[in-house]
């Protein structure tokens, strides 16, 4: 149901560490604001498109992944061109297109598990400060992945129950029962977690 956006492969980008990739992405997000030359930024878009092409995302996948972000930057660039100058709009378009392509590259070349490990490591300093329990993040993520299919099934049975009684199926009517039924399980799940000693303090 929740299929990761990671694409299998053994390219150089797949082999780079998560930390390096995130650092490069962060550096790029600062670098694109250093210039206002549309030609330089246009070159950056081409370059990042080439990098994105190397990770092995098929054309149709690329379209479905990039369509929405590109439409949103298109709208923003259009508004900028309208309120400011057309060149300004183009600069905005190129800046964000570069970042979106690079970000999509990192997502496609990184496995969820590796990403989570890196995040847990990044959280360690905060754990030492007592602000967060790094292991809790993984536990919470696991719970979400475990319960999304179950809640979706519950929605289906609510829908069928409505249909069976001849009631019009209105998502609005199902919102409250769906939320109540789901959250009522919280005590049981919490008890099960504590009984198994999954959270150590």
């Amino acid at each position: 149901m929740l299929k990761s956006l990671h694409v299998e492969g053994t390219t150089l980008l797949h082999r780079l560490s998560v930390r390096t990739k995130l650092a490069v992405l962060f550096a790029a997000s600062l670098a694109v604001f250093l210039t206002v030359d549309p030609f330089v930024l246009g070159g950056a878009v081409l370059l990042s498109a080439l990098v994105f092409a190397t990770v092995g995302v098929s054309f149709s996948q690329a379209v479905s992944r990039l369509a929405w972000p590109l439409v949103s930057i298109g709208l923003v660039a259009g508004a900028t061109a309208f309120f400011e100058t057309p060149v300004h709009g183009l600069v905005v378009l190129f800046r964000f297109a570069t970042l979106i392509l690079l970000a999509a590259t990192v997502t496609a070349s990184t496995e969820v598990g590796d990403f989570m490990e890196e995040i847990t490591r990044l959280m360690m300093p905060f754990e030492r400060l007592g602000l967060v329990n790094a292991a809790d993040i993984g536990l919470a993520l696991g719970l979400v992945l475990r319960f999304v299919p179950e809640i979706a099934t519950r929605y289906e049975s609510l829908r069928e129950a409505h249909a069976a009684r001849g009631l019009p199926v209105r998502p609005l009517k199902m919102l409250a029962p769906l939320i109540i039924l789901t959250l009522k399980d919280a005590d049981m799940i919490a008890m099960a977690i504590d009984a198994r000693g999954l959270r150590r303090h």
Partner: peptide, 26 residues
Amino acid sequence: LLILMVAVGLPVLSGGRGGLAVLAGP
């Protein structure tokens, strides 16, 4: 937690959107 899931590349937003590209946009 939801944004973390978006960041690590899970298509959790409506229409199956997700990944760092969503966060990097304007």
